[in-house]
Design a binder for these strands. Sequence first.
DNA 1: AATATTGTTCAGCA
DNA 2: GTGCTGAACAATAT
Length: 265
Amino acid sequence: MPELPDVQVFKQYVDSTSLHQTIRKIDLRSPELLGDVSAEELKQHLLDHSIHASRRHGKYLFLRLDNSASVVLHFGMTGFPVYFLNQESAPDHIRLLLTFSSGYYLAYDCRRKLGLIDLAGNEQDFIDSKELGIDAFSEHFTYKTLKDLLKNKKGSIKSTLMNQKIIAGIGNIYSDEILFQSGIHPKSCAGALDDSRLKHLYNEIKRVFQQSIQSLASTRAFPKEFLLPNREPGAECPLCGGNIVKQTISSRSSYFCNQHQTDIS
DNA sequence: AATATTGTTCAGCA
DNA sequence: GTGCTGAACAATAT
């Protein structure tokens, strides 16, 4: 379930393995994942070129090539990148496979085919075409930005946080985590949160993402006071001892504490 | 075998 | 057009 922290870790992974290597071969095994680019065009841009930088916006990862175009990857529910040398280490559902001149491979694996492989001449134009909002981990995402974005919003705070056109990067899992840490009920009206709650929310977005990126990148051990390891109905709330309950909110299953996330504003 | 899973997109409604 | 909700879709595990 790659949301912002997962994709940030993918970015770090690609940065530390795959930059500045000439691509000798490209094997597109699931062309149905292509966006507005043809297989031919993609191959043309990749072959004999290299990735010289990467950038993440929300849940999208851009691999910037040395010819100024960028490969765009979206990981859907089940996607991830794998860098490997021996075939025994190859993942099971490779959709795109790059072979570097070093002999190493970079695979885009996606068990369920709910991802996207695309090519962007200009990354900002791509972001605009998807109407993506500001990245939730960007330094330009300030408290004031959040306050302005939520002002006058009529929907629940959960569905608002998950709306990629308002803020990019937050999905079902992390909206639950952020609201849990902020002590805000997921059904609270987004536009009705007072300054104190908004401040909490802002701080927790930053803190949860920073902590999660750290946990995913190293030990994968999330802090035990996170909701994530306790995300099942009937579990004991690690913050207050209440009960974790499951409820469908904006047609997604949400988990929250029935004790410290009770009041709906 | 039916159900749950998630991000995106789109139909439908006020 | 705008803002919002809910459902469809992909493929697989349980």
